[in-house]
Each structure stands twice: as C-alpha cells, then as structure tokens.
C-alpha cells in the first residue's frame, strides 16, 4: 500500500492533483480550511492508491510525498 503525505498547510487547494489522479481518489476538502485559508486536498481512499505519483507530478507546491 502506498503512503501519501500532504504538507496540508502549504496546500493552496488548486485541485491540479485531483484532476491528475487516475483512480479519482483525491478531493478538495470543502469542510476543512488550512493555515493559509485554503480548502486543502486530501486522500479519500489510501488503500486504492497505486503510487503512480501523478498527483505529486502536477502539484505546483511540492507538498506531496509518496512512499511505498
């Protein structure tokens, strides 16, 4: 199983990772607000992550770390 870590407080909620995920596992958490005042991205189902790193590749703020 892959382990995704978000530096949530650096997320700007741009959503580029959401669109990049081939498994549609990421969402912008509308119910959360980070330190910067953005709704951050989060993983909905870590079990299904295939560690393709598409999300991290698209992330402009380099906040995603992926381990396997």
């Amino acid at each position: 199983m892959a382990k995704l870590t978000f530096k949530t407080d650096l997320c700007k909620g741009c959503g580029l990772c959401v669109g990049a995920c081939p498994k549609n596992l990421l969402v912008i958490a509308k119910d959360k607000i980070n330190k910067k005042g953005y709704h951050p991205a989060e993983m909905t189902d870590a079990e299904k992550c295939i560690a393709c790193a598409f999300c991290a590749t698209m992330c402009p703020d380099c906040i995603i770390t992926i381990e396997k």
């Binding site: 700007k12 909620g13 741009c14 959503g15 580029l16 953005y38 590749t57 698209m58 992330c59 402009p60 703020d61 380099c62």
Partner: peptide, 11 residues
C-alpha cells in the same frame, strides 16, 4: 512558494 494557486511556476 508565493505563486497563485495552480500556477505552474512551482512545477
């Protein structure tokens, strides 16, 4: 990064 959300400068 000070860039706007979704700005590709970061990439």
């Amino acid at each position: 990064l000070h860039y706007c959300p979704g700005c590709t400068h970061g990439i």
